[in-house]
């Protein structure tokens, strides 16, 4: 037993500290065990209804006033799924190129060495400015970006895409530059020795080597973009989240479940697709998890 204590040592205190932190936070938030169950009969009833509806998702609209020529609900749900996919694709197609540029500027792999002092100062400031810029654009949540853009530009597909793309290019760019900087430099050295320039070395010796990791991570972020795209529905952009919110407002829980099942199915399929891609590229999300 003694050996084990030695192995953990300090780590024990980390555990203890986390328990204390949790209790403090729970106190500040007013969390009590009693809060984990519905507070009154009305809430109990609603909860029961909601979970009962899980076994009985709607195949027809619960609302009697839907016009006859409206799409059937399953078709509306599938359309919602595709609208969600659309915003994710659009946003990622903006975010990945932006992130490549930002990631390049925020990495030191393409710096010439040796270089003069003035060049060095210039490169350092480019590095810091781009890192700070990435930090700023990803510090604001996509929902808040969406609020700002919708207010400034009006409701439009482009506003939704840009709102998603901004924080995503910040995160992608940061991780891209880290992936690039951690890539082995032996090939780059060899290419420099036969006359390749610094930027050329970066493009042909380092970037191709980092590509599988960049692709894997981009795909992982695409999965995240899908979830965020669904949530954009809650600020009024037409994705499946909007349908969920509207049905929920009217207490049409069976409709909510229809949409929920479609949403979960889509995300699980994309999750499995991503896992298959990572397996074939021999990469993991490891090291780049935000």
């Amino acid at each position: 037993m003694k050996a084990e204590t030695g192995k953990y040592g300090l780590k024990r205190w980390v555990g203890l500290g986390l328990i204390v932190a949790f209790l403090l936070c729970a106190r500040a938030l007013g969390l009590t065990p009693g809060g984990l169950i519905p507070p009154d009969a009305g809430h109990w009833e609603r909860t029961g209804e909601f979970f009962a509806a899980a076994l009985d998702p709607a195949f027809d609209y619960e609302d009697g006033n839907v016009p006859d020529d409206a799409d059937p609900i399953w078709w509306k749900g599938i359309k919602g799924v595709f609208l969600t996919l659309k915003f994710a694709f659009g946003a990622m197609s903006l975010a990945v190129p932006t992130a490549l540029v930002l990631g390049f500027l925020g990495s030191s792999a393409w710096w010439p060495e040796p270089c003069g002092r003035r060049t060095r100062v210039l490169l350092r400031s480019v590095y810091l400015v781009s890192r700070l810029f990435m930090s700023v654009i990803r510090s604001i949540h996509e929902l808040i970006w969406a609020l700002l853009f919708l207010s400034a530009m009006g409701v439009s597909p482009l506003a939704g895409m840009i709102a998603l793309a901004l924080p995503f290019s910040g995160t992608l760019g940061k991780v891209f530059s880290e992936i690039i900087d951690e890539e082995a430099r032996d090939a780059a050295q060899a290419l420099k020795a036969i006359g390749h320039g610094p930027v050329q070395t970066f493009l042909v010796g380092i970037l191709p080597r980092a590509t599988p990791n960049l692709v894997s991570y981009s795909f992982y972020r695409f999965e995240c973009a899908l979830r965020s795209s669904a949530v954009l529905g809650f600020v009024g952009i037409e994705t499946i989240g909007l349908y969920i919110e509207l049905s929920h407002e009217e207490f049409y829980y069976r409709e909510v479940w229809t949409y929920l099942y479609l949403l979960i199915a889509m995300i699980v399929v994309v999750d499995l697709w991503g896992a298959a891609i990572r397996r074939r590229l021999h990469t993991s999300t490891g090291g780049c998890a935000i």
């Binding site: 032996d186 020795a193 042909v204 010796g205 590509t211």
Partner: peptide
């Protein structure tokens, strides 16, 4: 750089890009 283009070097660990 011009001079280096006329000098081929094979480093000990070869310096190839493995996924090309």
């Amino acid at each position: 750089r011009r001079l280096r283009t006329t000098l081929a070097t094979i480093p000990q660990h070869l310096g190839l890009v493995p996924n090309l």
